[in-house]
Structures are given as structure tokens and as C-alpha cells.
Amino acid sequence: MMQQASPAVSSDPLLDVDNLVVEYPVGNKIVHAVSGVSLQIARGETLGLVGESGCGKSTLGRAVLQLRRPVSGRVLFDGQDLTAMQGDTLRLMRQRVQLIFQDPIASLNPRRRIGDIIAEPLIISGVKDAAKRQRLVDEALSAVGLDPALVVGRLPHEFSGGQCQRICIARALVLNPEFIVCDEPVSALDVSIRAQILNLLEEMKARYGLTLLFIAHDLAVVKAVSDRVAVMYLGRLCEVGPSEQLFAKPAHPYTALLIEAIPVPDPDVRPAETVPVGEPPSPISPPSGCRFRTRCPRADQRCSDEVPELRAVASGQFVACHHPLI
């Protein structure tokens, strides 16, 4: 697939993903989970990634970190290609990048004490001085608002979902990373706890100068923390742009559909009757041309013949659509 000028205009990209393809073999078939995605994230920036279940968000996040090796494409982190790295080089690089998962409780080993869970990345990365390890663990826990003295000796099941997510964030922070992939970090949490964790992530980002890829399917959550937002559908990027601009003037019909579907907590806003546009097709045999065409009200012949390439529609806003809304 031809890729035009890189979609994310960025003077200083920390992450540069170029034409990434990730597939899963299932029996004798292939799941086309990520099909030629390109994006950049500037140093200190948060890029939000939205799209419905199964569109490939987690796969993209994991492939960026090389937790799932892509079939093709490049992932430049601070100018170095992660896809070409092996063994120790990759392990060293991994200290600079971290992942936070959706299910905080399941991602903590139930039989290990919190202190050991957070010290583990330090041990793996070769911090041999136990006193130093303890100091770093204490710092990370304090940073996320937990009292180390009350926490280190306990097991994960003694904590609530929100506290477990704090612990996961502490574990991600302990190596002082530059870049974190947050894969639906608040989806499993209650509204009240969700706000606490979102605020905490924002605070940590400012304090440590972090760069984030923030994955979620809730648009309001994504907007709350993201400088720019990328919308994904069935393995491809539909649209990328500055958060406010994208929500105010979506160019892609799918982005517009997502925005319309957001439940608004205001009784005067009668939800617009949704057009029953059906459900996403299978990523095993995605539609030809534009993958959204089977649900798109604007689809025509060209949409089934030609894959729409990402192109600029407004300053900083890029869309992959033959008939964009703007």
C-alpha cells in the first residue's frame, strides 16, 4: 500500500510507526488485525486510539512494543527500528517503553506481594542493589498515591480495582520509562474511580514528561487525556487529528457515527435514533476497498474498488475516505 506524507505532523517524533501489518494465523485462515497503519507520536504527546472491539487497537499497541512481532512495517522509537532488534538490545530498549493493561487485577500475579511485583522490572533490568530497589519501589508507589508501608507486604486480592490499577501504573513507572502504551486502563473501573485514575495518568505524564499511546473505546475518556486522536476501523486508520478539531468536525463517516453514539448525560439531549448500520465484518475476510463500506451511508462503487489513502483535509487532520464529510 502506498503511503503519502506521514499523517502525524510532528517535528520531534518519539515514535514513528510506518505501514505496520500484523496478522494472526487461525487454522488455515489469516486474521488481518492491523493492515498498514502509519502514525507518529511526538515527545510528550498523548495520542488517543479509538475504535470498536476487535478493530486491532491492542494488537497495534502490542506490535509497537514488539510483544507481537509485525509481519511487515517499521517501528522507529527515538530513531531506532524496534522491529530489527533482537535479544539484549531489545530488552534494553524495552526499559524505556511500558504497557498498562485493561484488567488491572488479572495483570498482577495473585501470589506475589505488591513490593515484589513492582521490584520485578528492576530485577530484570539488572538493578542489583536491594536498598536502591526498595527506594525506587517506594517512590513509584508514593507517586501513584499509595502508602508504601501499608502496601508492599500485601497481595493483589486485598486491593480494589482502582488500587490495582494504581499498582500497575507504579509498576510501569518504576523503570522511569519514556513511553507508555495504556491499553484501556480505565475501561474496567467505575465512573468515580475512573476519574481518579485519569487524573493520576495526567499528573504522571506531566511529572515524568511521558509520551502516551492511550487506547480506549470511550470517546469522552479519550478526549479527556489526548492531544490528538486516531480512529481505527477493522485494522486500518480512518482518521487522525487534533482532539478538539476531530470531535468538532469529523471528516470520516465512521468517526461521525462514533461521536453520534456517545451517550450524553443531559436529559434535554434526546439521543438521535441510530440508523441500524449493522456490525463490523470479519477481519478474516475484510471488504475490498474501504473496509467501512458495508456500514457506510456514503459508500459508492469507488469505495469497493479503491482503498482510500490517508490524506490531509484540514490542518493536522488526516482522513482515509473517498467522500469525506469536510
Partner: peptide, 24 residues
């Protein structure tokens, strides 16, 4: 009031701190 305030609002500017409910 607290429950409603803690919801991220789609029309709020990015990086607006959320009025979280402390504790649980």
C-alpha cells in the same frame, strides 16, 4: 452531583482535570 461531575465530558477541552470522587 459528584457522579455526574466525575464523567469525562465530550465537550470539555482535553486535559481538563476531572473532579474525581476520592476514596471508594
Amino acid at each position: 452531583e459528584a457522579l455526574l461531575a466525575a464523567l469525562p465530558k465530550i465537550d470539555a477541552a482535553p486535559h481538563t482535570p476531572l473532579p474525581a470522587i476520592s476514596g471508594r
